[in-house]
């Protein structure tokens, strides 16, 4: 596989991951929220390195702010 083709596949893979995340967040806000919590809680345990806990806090804090489950047509605030 040539380097150019490899690069193209990397870009496409990234685009797919981002898209899947966007769709999941829109269609299953509850599930995404639970997933985020599940990810964040082990990171926040005692004795984890500081950077991991910062990251965990970041993930968890987004859960609270971005929890709008009100569908696509109308922005809801």
């Amino acid at each position: 596989m040539s380097a150019s083709l490899l690069l193209q596949y990397v870009v496409i893979a990234l685009a797919v991951i981002v898209s899947a995340w966007v769709v999941a967040k829109k269609q299953f806000p509850g599930g995404v929220r639970r997933l985020r919590m599940a990810l964040a809680i082990p990171m926040l345990r005692e004795g984890r390195p500081a950077w991991l806990r910062t990251l965990g806090r970041k993930i968890a804090s987004q859960v609270r702010s971005g929890a709008g489950g009100c569908g696509g047509c109308r922005k809801c605030d």
Binding site: A15, V16, S19, V22, V23, K26, G72, C73, K75
Partner: peptide, 14 residues
């Protein structure tokens, strides 16, 4: 446009 750039674009890629 947000719908187009968000959910529609994402689904198109998938």
């Amino acid at each position: 446009l947000k719908r187009v750039g968000g959910i529609i674009l994402a689904l198109t890629v998938l």
